[in-house]
Design a protein around this nucleic acid. Structure first.
Lengths: 333, 333
DNA sequence: TTGTACGCGTTATCAC
DNA sequence: GTGATAACGCGTACAA
């Protein structure tokens, strides 16, 4: 069943069938109706492979992420897929894990599949050493590369990022304003995004006349129990803190558990602020005050920019979106 | 850059290049080496569209789910994508929402994209009225349809399901054995999976000489706060219960919050069991005893079965996987 | 408004 | 072991 079968049954040429198929106006209403009817009767569906071969595109975008079951990325993927589909594009998902070698391998694989663009979702794709990002930059010569919450300089590379610096700056400032003096900063990742979060926190303390001493900055696996254990051991070591700013809701949830285990009252004795406004922030008791990193807006902007690129519009290579502080019950403001 | 360019540079025909490309043994080592070298030099990559046109496949599987950001489905998608890729297949993701019309539309869309199979992830795709599932059955004439946690009779349709009946039967039995007498059942969905969960619970009570009265069965939105509110109102209405079996961790997390709000101690005065062993079960305080529905195994089995179908192996049309009861801190056993 | 003919880059079937 | 050539099904100049 192909375009020839339709053309025969409808007594027209395949060119006319093709025109009807692609909404070309240069077809008489009568002919169009006849062709459409034949298509309907035959249950004809154009072959996407043949079309892809001719047009050299299958309207498909590759979405790469380290782990699609991660709460943040799962949301990102949902919004990206939805917005891409709204624009008539399919999404090929590709979960890479965290190893550079695997990421490169899958990136090349996706390129060889002739996707129309690649979206790198999450801040885990940009390596500290520039040469480790070269593969991305060279691929950008062929197709647009979109970074969701990551930044990389380069022609045909577009970044949409949450203003993590401003977000943690604001959150930490609020903590200080509410009377907190001994802030503990908890983080997992040292990515571009992770670094900005820390900087924002440091800047806020500095502007508040305080200082974020190294012993108040701790890296921790993105795991509730790990965070809880870490805090318990810090407390045991005699470290005193009255507020915790965490780089993810997981860590913040661990902080709430820590407080519970140690008999510390939240928010009276301890304030906690999470990051991402994920489901976890509604799961703890009390519920987490958290920074909403605006995934949906981030994804919408990414897809918008991409469509702009496809359409030849002059789009910005870098878009920043402001976060929101969602006030719930782990802070006294 | 195509197969002709390579053939010219290597002084062979395109047929030979194609043979090298596809690992056909009927090529002399010398020729093979020469062709491979030319490919390397030219940086040649075969065109997947042309290959797709010839073979009528692009080794791509459509994965449909109602909402990829749902905790359970996000995990399922992760495992499915991983296992499919291990077998050399790409995954096209398609989130449909919950409307039948949209599901049908996207299903047809995916079919028209000539995917090699469609995996329906989650129990939300099978409708109560048989005629509403006809579109799935008719598509099965073309490509295999895989149901992950759903069941539908039909040629070329394969189901992999968690034994929800046995799971809730066992969980409820344990509650009874631990001395609970007034069990409250909380659920969200009336899907195939949802119905089995309820039945298992009912059967356990019956076999324990008890009965699950209608006022002890409540439907609730899959939302922590909604569950908490519902339970508070039930309590206010005078309903007495000493244990809660929930069809999801969300509802169970709501139950924990309810207990906290009402000053009820868990597990002394109230036992709670969730479902799915999701991140939520580790987020509450105390942590949830929950049923592990074995998503990873479910996904592995689904992909295995599918590969069997592709390979012409005689595979079962229905595979059932046993769940596990993960004992944590919301039960006294 | 409609039709013809060719190109897209493979794979597969022959013949040698 | 290798080569010539016909599919595969569509889009699209160009001609009519």
């Amino acid at each position: 069943m192909n375009i020839y079968d339709v053309s025969k049954k409808a007594n027209v040429s395949i060119a006319t069938v093709s025109r009807v198929l692609n909404g070309n106006p240069n077809v008489s209403d009568k002919t169009r109706a006849r062709v459409l009817e034949v298509m309907e009767n035959l249950g004809y569906t154009p072959n996407v492979f043949a079309r892809g071969l001719g047009l050299n595109t299958m309207r498909t975008i590759g979405i790469m992420c380290s782990d699609s079951s991660d709460l943040y990325l799962a949301n990102a993927i949902y919004y990206l897929e939805r917005d891409l589909r709204l624009n008539g594009y399919d999404s090929i998902l590709c979960c890479t894990g965290y190893e550079l070698e695997t990421k490169q391998k899958y990136f090349d694989l996706l390129c060889s599949k002739r996707v129309d663009a690649i979206i790198l979702a999450g801040s885990k794709f940009i390596e500290p050493r520039p040469k480790d990002n070269a593969y991305i930059q060279s691929a950008a010569a062929m197709i647009p590369i979109m970074l969701l919450n990551g930044y990389l300089e380069g022609e045909n590379i577009y970044s949409t990022i949450c203003d993590d610096f401003a977000a943690t700056y604001h959150a930490a400032s609020q903590l200080i304003r509410s009377g907190r003096r001994k802030l503990l900063y908890l983080y997992t990742s040292t990515s571009y995004s992770g670094a900005n979060k820390l900087k924002g926190c440091q800047a806020a303390l500095k502007d508040g006349g305080l200082c974020l001493e190294p012993e108040y900055i701790h890296q921790c696996r993105k795991d509730i129990t790990a965070a809880k254990e870490l805090l318990l051991s810090l407390r045991e070591q005699g470290l005193e803190f009255d507020s915790i700013l965490a780089s993810s809701d997981s860590l913040a949830a661990g902080a709430v558990k820590y407080a519970h285990a140690a008999g510390i009252s939240i928010p009276d004795e301890l304030s906690v602020i999470g990051y991402n406004n994920s489901i976890l922030s509604r799961c703890t008791d009390p519920e987490l005050t958290t920074i909403d990193s605006k995934v949906e807006a981030l994804c919408a902007s990414t897809v918008n920019t991409l469509m702009g690129v496809f359409g030849g519009v002059n789009v910005p290579s870098r878009t920043t979106i402001a976060a929101d502080l969602i006030k719930r019950a782990t802070t006294n403001f």
